[in-house]
Amino acid sequence: MSDDENLWYYSVSDGSVHQGKGTHVFDRMGPYPDRATAERALEIAAERRKAADAADEEWNN
Results as ranks from 00 to 15, higher is better:
Ser11Asn: 15
Thr37Leu: 02
Met1Cys: 07
Ala54Ser: 00
Glu43Gly: 09
Ala46Leu: 11
Gly30Leu: 11
His18Met: 14
Arg35Thr: 07
Arg49Cys: 00
Gln19Trp: 06
Tyr32Gly: 10
Ala36Lys: 05
Arg40Gln: 15
Trp8Thr: 13
Val12Ala: 07
Asn60Gln: 08
Asp4Phe: 09
Ile44Glu: 07
Gly20Ser: 10
Ile44Arg: 04
Asp14Glu: 11
Ala52Cys: 00
Glu5Tyr: 07
Asn6Met: 10
Arg40Asn: 13
Asn60Cys: 04
His18Leu: 12
Pro31Asn: 07
Ala45Arg: 12
Asp34Leu: 06
His18Glu: 14
Leu42Pro: 02
Glu43Ile: 02
Arg35Cys: 12
Trp8Leu: 11
Ala38His: 09
Thr37Asn: 02
Lys50Thr: 09
Lys21Ser: 05
Glu57Met: 01
Ser11Ala: 15
Ala55Cys: 01
Ala41Cys: 05
Phe26Gln: 09
Asn6Cys: 03
Leu42Met: 13
Ser16Asp: 05
Arg48Ile: 03
Ser2Met: 02
His18Tyr: 11
Asn61Leu: 04
Ala36His: 04
Ser13Gln: 13
Glu5Val: 01
Asp34Ile: 13
Val12Cys: 02
Glu39Phe: 02
Leu7Met: 14
Asp3Gln: 08
Thr37Cys: 01
His24Gly: 05
Trp59Val: 10
Asn60Lys: 06
Ala52Ser: 08
Glu43Val: 07
Asp56Gly: 00
Glu58Trp: 02
Glu47Lys: 15
Asp3Asn: 05
Asp3Arg: 02
Asp27Arg: 05
Ser16Gln: 13
Asn61Glu: 06
Glu43Asp: 08
Asp56Arg: 06
Pro33Phe: 00
Thr23Val: 13
Glu47Ile: 06
Thr23Phe: 09
Ala36Ile: 07
Thr37Met: 00
Phe26Met: 06
Leu42Ala: 07
Arg40Leu: 13
Asp3Tyr: 01
Ser13Tyr: 14
Tyr32Thr: 14
Gly20Lys: 09
Gly15Asp: 08
Ala52His: 00
Tyr9Pro: 09
Glu5Leu: 11
His24Glu: 12
Asp3Ile: 04
Leu42Gly: 06
Pro31Val: 03
Lys50Met: 04
Ala51His: 04
Gly20Gln: 08
Glu57Thr: 10
Val25Pro: 06
Glu39Ser: 10
Glu43Phe: 02
